[in-house]
Amino acid sequence: MTPDFPNLSFTLFCLLNTGFVLLVSPFYMSLIKKVKAAAQGRKGPRLLQNYYDLRKLLHREVVYSPTSSGVMRVTPYLNLAVLLLASLFVPVIFIPDAPAGIGNIIVFIYLLAIERFFTALCGLDAGSTFGGMGSSRAMSLSAVIEPTMVISFAALAYVLKTVDLHEMFAITSASAIPVSPTLVLVSISLFIIIIVETGRLPVDNPATHLELTMINEAMILEQSGKNLALIELTHSVKQTLLMAVLINILVPVGLSGGPNMGDLAVSGLLVSGLAFLVKAALLAVVIGLFESSLSKMRLFRLPVFYMMAFFFSALTILMEVFA
């Protein structure tokens, strides 16, 4: 199955899917903040606050430290480009006739690794203690979560018998209920992965003001102006993509198209777009509530938390093996 490239379905997909993800991502950042504020009895930011922030930052000048090098200047662009590429791997509104390899789950994991690698280098670039601390912690924690992430995706590959995200979604969206009960187990791991990868409580506190407790925020402490806007946008796109993976595995209702459905109706796209908006909003609320109900864990207690996620995904594979 190697459709000729460029075909219409895939070109359309590149524009629509990526544009859609870019457009809605900042919204969920604000929404989670809003939910957390509500849980704490505060009013919280406006729902569109992140868009205003991005616009403001985009018009600000970039300030570089004289210590910093080209790494600092290239990374914001590179990271957003990587995440744009990654967005092709996760169909949000419809499943296109993608060229072979676009959708490969391992490539997706490693695209996220590029983002992490260069963000961590940025943290070291300016020579600040906080940046170095952030890089060290972020890389260490991401190394420890990696087996969980790979085993979770391997569990998906085991259950759905494919390593392609597009095909996985096509299989899950073909039935209304989850294809296999074990997928529910993997979903728990995927949820924990979202929490870890997007730097949320109890792993990292995105709202902290104390540098010593920061992980992700410490790495980007030296970023400013439009570079910071790009980094923030990258971060929110990453969150949306990971959320989309979980949603499309667990409740794929509304995702239209499939490798065989060539004719795409505008109404169908609207429905699936809306469906994703609602589902992702619900998930964002859950994430917000989850964050509000926990306090930050000590750094060296975190591997225990990761073991839990690892356990659920390994259990899935074992159940498939011995079923």
């Binding site: 210590t67 090098s69 790494v71 690794a113 992490r116 690698f117 961590a120 280098l121 943290g123 070291l124 670039d125 300016a126 020579g127 170095g132 890089s135 060290s136 890389m139 260490s140 991401s142 190394a143 420890v144 990696e146 087996p147 992430m149 790979v150 085993i151 690892f310 390994a314």
Partner: peptide, 24 residues
Amino acid sequence: SALALTSALAATLFVKVFGITFLA
């Protein structure tokens, strides 16, 4: 799992080596 951990640790290792040797 060992392979995944190895690969992520290798990334950490080379962030460290490049960062400490060449940056700052």
